[in-house]
Design a protein around this nucleic acid. Structure first.
Length: 627
DNA sequence: CCCTTTGCAC
């Protein structure tokens, strides 16, 4: 149905009666701010009366306020008389709707325009409606618009095709996206990037990799999305390798690439590469990029270089809550509780509002350093002063705080009174406290819950048997081991890694296959002799296997962190710090050994375990043995 | 003249 355009009469000249300044201001205000068709009519009448050209009306706004009301026809007539292109002005309206709070309005307007056959949609019309469908993940209408794209002969429009592929993939219809992708007559680098991005979002790194290999040309974004994909799926080593490859083919990284590769360095503890990327980033002019700086803080923190993290933080001209939280978290895992609290209060002074993550950082600091009272106070101030509802992670911090602090009974009661069902992390924190404070009864209680919640998690069995071993309850140790075997629970292999000259070297316990294995064992024997002179006695109770005492010792001496340390001592210049990363908690015997070794070789040894950092120096550790 | 699609942090 076509619209009837000439129902309104516009006089060419109208006398300007009763024109007071007040009303003029009012009308001017109205001209630019009208928000209803009623006001629009007033403005329109005024324009007619004052003989002002219709083009003075903000026409897109006219469409925006009228399109979905009964004044649709009225707006249409105004456009016709203003002599503007229908497609142009309605497309602008569609764009406004698509970017508004209710993108669905764009879809509604599109159908209305089709219904009244106002104009033939062009590629822009389709793009804005597709944009709306994509924002709302509206597959149903998306398919219909896709149909229009085909019907209108816009199949060769690459922009639109890319949008449709993106829409299908984003709505989870990978099959349809893939089908369209494969049968497109032409694809550009964006098409490939969209497919790769969506495959990665859905966790299909293998297929993403396949496409990445197949694509004819790659942009920075192609490399970046792959690098960040590897980081997201827990393969930072591959991410770094890809970055090096990217540099090799001469593609310049941008801010986003830098953020991704720094995150990989953080996960790997790859300080040297991290520093190099930092310099690269400065040379590229990203010094003032907040996200880059935030990621640098996190990278330095996770590589054990608190001073460098602090320098980046201090040099920032502008900070977000991410900057503060990263710095707070960093100080916390390095055991600097007092400084953590100082910086927290400094943050409050600057007017920055903490969030839930910030509190996880400061509560962590308190529990790592045994500041029980501070922790309790901060926990209650969280809701009272900052309106943050504690999540289960925060309850976990308090259970950890109380348990490590030896207040095991209170921790247990705290768990019982939690407003949510305790999870494995909560009971695990209590269990950890039971190990430190040698409480078998509560350990058994915690384990009962843990076995119910997470029967296949090996960590809990290991800690429980450690606790039995401490009390020399060997039958119970054997019982736990039998239980593990019967339930088919496998101990997570411990590994440690050390990066030398940007190459990551991984070690697993008992590894004798490393090319330098024999050298490592020889050097270990030499160190062992010196350690024994300083009073080292191997703590074989941490070995849970059934074997002779000598055999246990041999096993203990092949712990992955010890192998990594000796390898590091052999392959890095004397006097430089050694940085080791471990996937599990550092073992008690290794902790004792590393303290002594730091003194014997006069080197700083930084170990990042799954919870925190241990900085060994001059025969002591930054955790002050509280961990 | 509406000029459209893909990537990033605690």
């Amino acid at each position: 149905m076509a619209l009837y355009f000439s129902s309104l009469h516009f006089p060419s000249t109208v006398a300007n009666h009763h024109h007071s300044p007040t009303s003029h201001t009012l009308k001017t205000h109205l001209l630019h701010n009208f928000s209803s068709p009623f006001e629009l009519k007033q403005v329109h009448t005024h324009l007619v009366k004052t003989n002002t050209p219709l083009s003075n009306l903000p026409l897109t706004r006219v469409g925006f306020v009228s399109a979905l009301t009964s004044s649709f026809t009225y707006a249409h007539q105004i456009f016709a008389h203003a002599g503007v292109s229908q497609v142009f002005v309605w497309n602008s309206c569609l764009k406004m709707f698509a970017e508004s709070e209710n993108p669905g309005d764009a879809v509604l307007l599109f159908y209305k325009l089709r219904q009244f056959n106002v104009f033939l949609p062009d590629s822009f019309t389709c793009s804005f409606v597709l944009k709306a469908c994509t924002t709302m993940l509206d597959l149903f209408n998306g398919r219909i618009v896709h149909g229009y794209v085909e019907k209108l002969g816009l199949k060769s429009n690459l922009f639109l095709q890319n949008m449709v592929v993106n829409l299908y993939a984003l709505c989870g219809e990978m099959g349809d996206a893939r089908l369209l992708f494969e049968k497109m007559s032409q694809r550009d680098v964006v098409t490939w990037n969209i497919m790769i991005t969506q495959l990665i979002k859905r966790g299909d790194m293998v297929e993403a990799c396949e496409l990445f290999t197949r694509m004819p040309e790659r942009s920075v974004r192609s490399w970046t999305v792959m690098i960040s994909g590897y980081v997201q799926c827990g393969k930072p080593k591959e991410a770094v390798e890809l970055f090096v490859e990217m540099e090799g083919v001469g593609v310049r990284a941008n801010e986003v690439t830098v953020v991704a590769v720094l995150a990989a360095c953080a996960d790997l503890g790859a300080l040297d590469l991290g520093r190099r990327v930092h310099e690269y980033s400065n040379r590229s002019g990203f010094r003032r990029n907040i996200r880059v700086s935030n990621t640098l803080i996190d990278m330095y923190v996770k590589c054990g270089c608190l001073e460098d993290a602090r320098r980046v933080f201090d040099e920032m001209e502008e900070r977000t809550i991410f900057s503060w939280s990263a710095m707070i978290q960093g100080l916390a895992i390095h055991g600097q509780a007092e400084e953590t609290l100082r910086i927290f209060y400094k943050m409050i002074e600057t007017g920055m509002k903490p969030n839930g993550v910030t509190f996880i950082g400061i509560l962590h600091a308190c529990s790592h350093m045994g500041l029980i009272e501070d922790g309790r106070k901060l926990f209650s101030s969280m809701t009272r002063d900052y309106g943050i509802i504690p999540q289960i992670e925060h309850y976990g911090c308090i259970v950890d705080l109380l348990s490590r602090g030896g207040l095991l009974q209170e921790a247990y009661e705290f768990i019982m009174n939690m407003p949510m069902k305790p999870n494995g992390i909560i009971w695990g924190a209590l269990l950890g406290g039971c190990r430190v404070h040698k409480n078998v009864d509560l350990a058994e209680e915690a384990t009962r819950h843990l076995h119910q919640l997470d029967p296949l998690n090996d960590g809990y069995y290991v800690v429980l048997s450690n606790i039995y071993a401490q009390s020399e309850r060997w039958e119970d140790v054997a019982r736990v081991r039998r239980l593990m075997r019967n339930r088919g629970v496998k101990k997570t292999p411990g590994w440690s890694s050390i990066t030398v000259d940007e190459v990551v070297h991984e070690f697993v316990a008992g590894d004798e296959t490393h090319p330098q294995a024999q050298e490592i064992f020889r050097m270990w024997e030499k160190l062992l002799g010196k350690m024994k002179l300083k009073g080292y006695v191997p703590n074989t109770s941490v070995v849970l296997l059934d074997m002779e005492e000598k055999e246990k010792e041999r096993f203990l001496y092949r712990h992955s962190e010890k192998l990594a340390l000796v390898f590091g001592l052999m392959n890095t210049p004397p006097g430089t710090p050694i940085r080791i990363l471990k996937n599990l908690r550092v073992c008690e015997d290794c902790h004792t050994a590393f303290k002594l070794i730091s003194e014997i070789v006069n080197r700083e040894i930084v170990v990042r375990d799954r919870n925190r950092f241990h900085c060994f120096k001059d025969a002591s550790c930054s955790c002050r043995d509280y961990w």
